[in-house]
Design a protein around this nucleic acid. Structure first.
Lengths: 252, 252
DNA sequence: GAGGTCAATTGGTCAGGCCAGTTGACCAGT
DNA sequence: ACTGGTCAACTGGCCTGACCAATTGACCTC
């Protein structure tokens, strides 16, 4: 408790907003963005601030700024960035199950080597999340920061990258459509509580507890998801979201 | 030839210059840099340009900008980073660590739901591998098939894909060069034995055993790797080129 | 049609200024 | 002597407005 307030800087907020749009696919790859002056006006920020946000995204590899020409989107989703062809790949349930397995192992590892400053990073993400549960877009940024923050504790960039990529895979129209049915301030607050449990276990150096808390969190997410899934698609393959149909090499 | 002239943008040049100083260790970790206004004047650029350069470095993780307080160096050279117990370093070693954490969790899960036909798939991969330990290329294919085959048991395409991607990341010139020093029929036969231990634990439904066996396998790979790494770079590690004389502002 | 010209557009940089958060010296009260 | 509050100097965050440099495409000339 008593974590830093964070007061996010404006150019960071702008960068987050544009990044989410790119990841979600609202901005097509190769597409040219409006001119800096227009963009700044639409976002109600000054051009220097907008420029700083764009530089962040350029360093991260989302956009390509060409002098005198314009700003271009260089990649859409994390899936495309990794060189994989076409679209959402796997379904939401598979994604959540995969995250449950991978991230609970990472949490377990993180609990073994967490230092006070690592916990401070998690607390920052929690604090940020608690303040924006009403904002569907901002809460995702905070959620992502928490999960990648855990991976960062291990001090392994590959783990951070994989965690981030798995998270970003939910930024598909299909996933978002389903998510919009059950995600809201209430469910985010529940998720926040689960996050706190994970954070506490990691802070206490409780490896088994961290693993269990993370598994609970992602399993619950899966459950919340499947409930709304059941409502909408009751009648078409009620389950199928796990442990089934793995003939042969499953597309290796 | 005829490479793009690239007319480096000024803020990039400034960022490069400061980054070099940090990597070289001319700026001590934790040290506070001069104020933006001073720094801009010393570097003969405007403050917006200097700010853009600082944002680049902040995104890259070299510095930490604290509002109202100042700019602080957060990490120094890669050499020093490896000297510390924590290594936020990209590289083969890190890749193997990430695989150890992720794949041992997958193996554990696989052991819980393995069916006879799944084990048959693993056996096929093992048989293929035993026949080609002399062929550096073919053995890699079999190795990959075994690891992704385990992920396939869980029946989750995302896990299969992630496992495959992590495996494929070793297909880089740098990794291959190092690998060529210790990979050979002998080491592959050792790896094959470790694979068999994993397969047996999964076939027996022994989750904890499968986890441990996979961990052993990848940890040993890491060990074999670091040994050859030590041979090649023994004596290089100058060690003294950092951690000294960084009082004051080091002439920014 | 080929090739050159030029002006509109766009990103790059600069100058100066105001606001808000941080910090530490200083002071009043206990 | 210690605590707690105040305040001014300093620092990063952000803005306005302007000019420069690279790109691009319409247009013109041959």
């Amino acid at each position: 408790m008593f974590s830093a307030v964070e007061s996010r800087r404006l150019y960071r907020q702008v960068a987050d907003q544009i990044r989410i749009m790119i990841i979600r696919g609202e901005l097509a790859i190769g597409q040219r963005l409006p001119a800096e002056r227009d963009l700044a006006e639409r976002l109600s920020v000054s051009r220097p601030t907008l420029r700083e946000a764009l530089i962040v995204l350029e360093v991260e590899g989302y956009i390509n700024i060409r002098m005198g020409s314009g700003i271009y989107v260089t990649r859409k989703s994390a899936a495309e960035a990794t060189g994989n062809e076409r679209e959402p790949l796997e379904g939401p349930f598979e994604l959540l199950q995969a995250r449950a397995i991978i991230e609970c192992a990472i949490s377990e590892e993180a609990a073994k080597s967490a230092r006070p400053q690592d916990i401070a990073v998690l607390d920052e993400a929690l604090k940020a999340m608690s303040g924006v549960v009403e904002d569907a877009r901002a809460v995702l940024v905070a959620d992502r920061a928490f999960h990648t923050g855990i991976a960062a504790i291990v001090g392994n960039a590959t783990l951070v990258r994989v965690t981030g990529e798995l998270f970003d895979m939910r930024m598909t129209p299909y996933f978002e459509k389903l998510a919009s049915h059950f995600e809201g301030p209430v469910s985010w607050r529940t998720a926040l509580e689960e996050h706190r449990a994970i954070r506490d276990a990691i802070a206490a150096g409780n490896a088994a507890g961290a693993r269990a808390a993370m598994r609970t969190h992602l399993t619950n997410s899966q459950k919340r998801f499947s409930e709304s899934f059941g409502e909408e698609f009751s009648g078409e393959e009620g389950r199928g979201h796990a442990a089934e149909s793995n003939k042969g090499n499953a597309g290796i």
